[in-house]
Amino acid sequence: MIKKAPVLSLKEVTKKFGQEEVLNSVSFDLNSGEFAFLVGPSGSGKTTLFRVLSREIPLTSGEIMFLDKEISGRLSGRQIVWLRRQIGRVFQDLKLIGDRTIRENIEISFDIFDFPHQELEEILELVGLENRADLFPAQLSEGEKQRAGIARALIYRPKVLLVDEPTSNLDPASSWQIINLLKKVNQEGTAVIIATHNEDIVDSLKMRVIEIEKGKIIRDEADSQYQSNPEEKGKE
């Protein structure tokens, strides 16, 4: 069997804020079209890992390869722009612009890539926001905002999509809608990593689970379940 080349490969990635080590020698590969969960307690380094991967912040040491290109060294502005167009992100705080409608928020991505807006309606339909597009973010539910954030990341069909806590503050039905949407994106070839606390979803899907604690990967198993430690479970 031929092993697939990883789209993203991390080796000994470490990130320190001052003396505090937020990521500690994180290593894993992500294959093209793979679907994985990144689980771990709050403050374990999940969001920091996503920020490092999209070069929002530089890493302290280690190596990151993306599509066989090293992206952990010093990158020019142009290279960072290229990288962010390849590694899409759905942010935990969604980062929707408050004084623009959902349609306008999504149009931003079309404009960044200079894509014609014809596909906009199709994307809105895909995320189920076709009738809510002319409302402002404050007028939408959390689930709808989450879907808008995903829609914005889908436009340019990134190679990897990093989704940060997509189901926090969502009821189970809305959470499943979001996950199904992300699975659909994954089926179209985008590798997806979801950072989440949602055990039900992780356990039900039986996909790869990367567990991180205090910045260190403590488990990386395919077809796995959440298996969070009882102490953490009790805290949540």
Binding site: S54, E56, G77, R78, V81, R84, R85, R89, F91, K95, I97, I108, S109, D111, I112, F113, R152, A153, Y156
Partner: peptide
């Protein structure tokens, strides 16, 4: 500021 930050995180170039 937030809007500019969002644009950059979404992959907008400096000129954009």
């Amino acid at each position: 500021k937030d809007e500019v930050e969002i644009l950059k995180l979404l992959g907008a170039s400096s000129w954009q």
